[in-house]
Amino acid sequence: MKRSTLHKIITIILASVWLINGLYCKILNQVPRHETIVAHVLNTEHSRLLILIIGILEVCLAIWILTGYKQKLNAIFQITIVISMNIIEFIAAQDLLLWKKLNIIFALLFAVLVYVNAFHFNKKENNNYATKA
């Protein structure tokens, strides 16, 4: 399989993860555990509003991923969000996580996939940097 084809497939998968988590899990509130985690971590009664905002931002991130704009910056942003969020949840709400302690492993695997897709399979941006050198 060509690098560019693999890059497109992985890009769609990554955008789908953010879209599903933002729209289905948070905005449509089909996975109430997310709201429970936010309420627990932030100790707030406004967790529904915060979950809606987070969901909208995740949908926006999915759109950003699909546009292909500033893919490497986007990847760094995704990795930072996923790792930060999972460290906070690991420390403050481990008992509420779907896979408990293993959640951090899945987060790291996701971050690696984001990194590889943006920095190794992204032929277009990699070629642009090669021609500038």
Rank of each mutant, 00 (worst) to 15 (best):
K26T: 02
A15K: 08
V41F: 15
W64R: 07
Y69P: 03
E89S: 04
A39P: 01
I20A: 12
N43G: 12
I13W: 15
F77H: 07
A15W: 13
N21Y: 09
L49K: 05
N29Y: 07
T80G: 10
L57G: 01
I88S: 04
K26E: 03
I13Q: 12
M1C: 06
I87M: 08
I54H: 00
I51D: 12
Q78I: 11
L49I: 07
A15P: 07
S47D: 10
K124T: 04
M1T: 05
F106G: 07
V31A: 14
R3K: 14
N29F: 03
S16Y: 09
T67L: 06
M85C: 04
L98I: 05
I27E: 05
V112K: 12
L6E: 04
L6F: 10
N29R: 00
T131S: 15
G68M: 05
L23Q: 10
I104A: 04
N43M: 10
F77L: 15
N127C: 05
K132W: 09
L28T: 06
I79A: 01
T67K: 13
Y24Q: 08
L102S: 08
V59F: 11
V116D: 11
L73R: 06
A92N: 02
V17G: 15
C25N: 13
I87E: 02
T36I: 07
K124L: 01
I27W: 08
H46D: 11
I65K: 05
L50E: 00
K100D: 02
M1L: 06
V59N: 05
L57K: 04
G68H: 10
L109I: 03
T44H: 15
A133G: 15
N43F: 08
G55C: 03
T44M: 11
S4H: 12
L42N: 14
A62R: 02
Q30D: 07
I81K: 01
K124E: 07
N117H: 12
F90G: 03
T80Q: 04
N86L: 02
T131G: 05
K132Y: 14
S16A: 12
E125P: 07
L42K: 10
L14R: 10
K8Y: 09
N86P: 02
L23D: 04
A92S: 04
A118N: 12
I53P: 00
I12M: 13
T36D: 13
L49V: 09
W64M: 01
